[in-house]
Amino acid sequence: MENSVAQRLVTALKDSGVSFVSYLPETRLSRIIPLLQEDSLFRVVPTTSEAEAVSIAAGAALTGNQAAVYMEGTGVYVSAYSLFAVGERFGVPMLLLVSYVGSFNDKRNSSAFSHYTKTPQLLQALGIEYQVVSRAEEIEEQVGDAVRVMNSLKLPVALLFTGEFTL
């Protein structure tokens, strides 16, 4: 992802009130990490597992923070139990920022293609609303929509990033 796109995403998060981000880094969106860390408005927590990142974000959300979890698409598989046990059963709003690895518009797809294209089905099985994001010019609106929906539902909501976000 180009730095300008990363900055646009981080600004969109900030403008939507997101203030807490737990994460496990990956390849497509990783340029957002230094931008998040440099901005004192964000509390940024690196983790060792997406399952943990979801639980930590839930704790942050229950104390009044707009929380996000940044992960690779494979992280949805790893964190499925936490998303269900804490996010769904407790009803905790959090924004999942997921690189949609292996998707049709993933510009780096290669061996990963088809391996992880079941991410939408997994989210559906978990009852998690999601949108696919592929164009940088739409990021502000899509992040704003996602944050509004997660607060309305009081549930995790996912954005799957592909296209321009995977360059």
């Binding site: 930590i56 974000a57 839930a58 704790g59 942050a60 046990a85 804490v86």
Partner: peptide, 18 residues
Amino acid sequence: VGSLGNALGVGLGVALCL
């Protein structure tokens, strides 16, 4: 937290924010 494997993560998030 009515599950196994989540309380410490949730508690850490609460502790960091309060």
